[in-house]
Nucleic acid binder design. Structure first.
Lengths: 206, 206
DNA sequence: GTCTATATTAGGATAGAC
DNA sequence: GTCTATCCTAATATAGAC
């Protein structure tokens, strides 16, 4: 692997463990056994590294959120899609650990992040509307909007929330439980038979 | 107001606006028109200021979360209680802007914060169980646990989530909408007549 | 591309006079 | 209690040799 790429990999790892503000360029260079000068040869400053990482996150999550119009989704489809989104967020969790801080410091990222949130909402709404069309899900438009907003909130902050339980011990994020929490928010809106099915599968999954 | 108290007030204000990591002791002193030396006479370091602010937050929120056992709560009671909790969180929102970062840096606070989260969960569960006893709310134990966890997550991160919408322009947090979002999570579990009543009130409230 | 050495700066914190 | 002046440290970043 080329140095430029190694820098990105190690930076992501260190940022995720210690939090971006607590990782210095020197630490990154140390971890890679290269000199700080070398690091600055590849990236002219720390911001560039973060922007590069954010770009990758943006690219990956955008692909996952690109839902076909007018498709009929099943609850299982939704589950899978949700799981992939959670995995992506977990991979770049450093962004979420200190979200407001990072967005406050890097203007470029701020605008793009807002767009991703909007896409998340749209994708969620598309799926829910599809479930509603199929009469799997029952809800008024107002209920559905509130539900989608809650889902976006939960799926955005689940990794942070879960980490609160075990800061220090940097154990893995419990993604399955995050998906379960979102599903629990959807479940009460489902037709009884679909709800029973969903909760049954959920129980054994977490 | 005594200097010691003025420092706390101005610090809280600046932390909330700019984020704690972005506020220097010099800025605080400047804003107060006192010298940095004077500031350090009253608080031996920045951490002390944060610990003091966290102590106040802890005290205020603990009072709000102290629910009587075996009381019969109405949905309206819950609403009010929730609103007060949101106000408290908003007042000390700097803690939540960079939560993981702050908890990572200040060990003292970490443990106490975890305890507050647990209290939040217990208080929520007490109210939901009371609603269930009165047969206003219908849910299995597993559903209820997931619901309470979602509520704690939403009420913890609503201020941060809402701020994402308007970073830069430091407009106020839309607390009412936060309460509404929580209520939307509760609503589908309510008996139809209570649900209708709740959503009707909600609509005109936001 | 990579190194060593060093410049720059900013932020936290202290010393000592008043 | 308050001020001015200053120190210390850590982090970002650059210069110039190899």
């Amino acid at each position: 692997m080329k140095t430029r790429e190694r820098i990105i990999h190690v930076s992501l790892e260190l940022f995720n463990i210690f939090g971006e503000p607590n990782v210095t360029t020197l630490q990154i260079a140390d971890e890679l056994d290269i000199s700080p000068g070398n690091l600055y040869y590849h990236y002219k400053n720390k911001t560039e590294i973060i922007v590069e990482l954010f770009g990758r996150y943006e690219h990956e999550i955008t692909e996952l959120l690109d839902m076909p119009d007018d498709a009929d989704f099943s609850v299982e489809d939704y589950w899978l899609s949700l799981h992939l989104v959670f995995e992506c967020i977990a991979k770049y969790r450093f962004l979420y650990k200190d979200l407001v801080n990072i967005l406050q410091r890097y203007e470029k990222i701020r605008f793009k992040f807002k767009k991703i949130l909007q896409k998340k909402f749209d994708a969620t709404q598309k799926i829910c509307l599809s479930l509603k069309r199929q009469e799997i899900l029952l809800a008024t438009n107002a209920e559905l909007e509130a539900l989608c907003r809650n889902i976006v909130l939960i799926s955005t902050y689940w990794p942070s929330f879960d980490m609160l339980g075990h800061i220090g011990s940097d154990s893995d994020i419990d993604l399955a439980k995050g998906v379960y929490q979102v599903m629990s928010a959807v479940a009460p809106h489902l037709r009884p038979e679909d709800k029973a099915l969903l909760m049954e599968v959920s129980e054994q999954y977490i």
